[in-house]
Measured scan of single mutants.
Amino acid sequence: NQASVVANQLIPINTALTLVMMRSEVVTPVGIPADDIPRLVSMQVNRAVPLGTTLMPDMVKGYP
């Protein structure tokens, strides 16, 4: 099973992602692959992302 990117904390709308905000976890449904975490750094979320939420491609501005 492939690990996905999961919010490690509440991420407010328009926040630029940092490594501490994300963790990898095997979840269903599958979200953004954990391998993409380095690419996500400094990209902004377009909505508030609660703790434990799987990051989906449509939540991150400019992804992929």
Rank of each mutant, 00 (worst) to 15 (best):
N1T: 15
N1V: 15
N1A: 15
N1I: 15
N1Q: 14
A3E: 14
S4K: 01
S4L: 02
V5L: 03
V5D: 01
A7C: 04
A7T: 13
N8H: 13
N8R: 13
Q9L: 11
L10E: 14
I11G: 01
I11W: 01
P12D: 13
P12G: 07
P12H: 10
P12W: 05
I13P: 14
N14S: 08
N14T: 05
T15F: 05
T15L: 04
A16D: 06
T18C: 04
L19A: 09
L19E: 10
V20W: 12
M21K: 03
M22K: 00
M22N: 02
R23C: 05
S24L: 06
S24T: 14
E25P: 00
E25I: 05
V27M: 08
V27A: 08
P29R: 03
G31D: 01
I32D: 01
P33H: 09
P33L: 11
P33S: 14
P33E: 06
D35F: 07
D36E: 13
D36R: 10
D36F: 11
D36P: 00
D36M: 12
I37C: 04
I37A: 11
P38H: 10
R39T: 09
L40R: 00
L40F: 02
V41T: 07
V41K: 06
V41N: 04
V41P: 02
S42Q: 12
S42T: 10
M43S: 09
M43V: 06
V45D: 02
V45Q: 02
V45E: 02
V45S: 06
V45M: 05
V45A: 05
N46Y: 13
R47G: 06
V49F: 03
V49G: 02
V49A: 04
P50V: 06
L51Q: 15
L51E: 12
G52F: 07
G52W: 04
T53C: 06
T53D: 10
T53P: 00
T53M: 14
T53R: 11
T54Q: 03
T54M: 03
T54H: 02
L55E: 01
M56H: 11
M56S: 14
M56W: 06
P57C: 10
P57V: 10
D58P: 07
D58Y: 14
M59W: 08
M59N: 04
V60Y: 00
K61T: 12
K61R: 09
K61V: 13
G62Y: 07
Y63L: 06
Y63G: 04
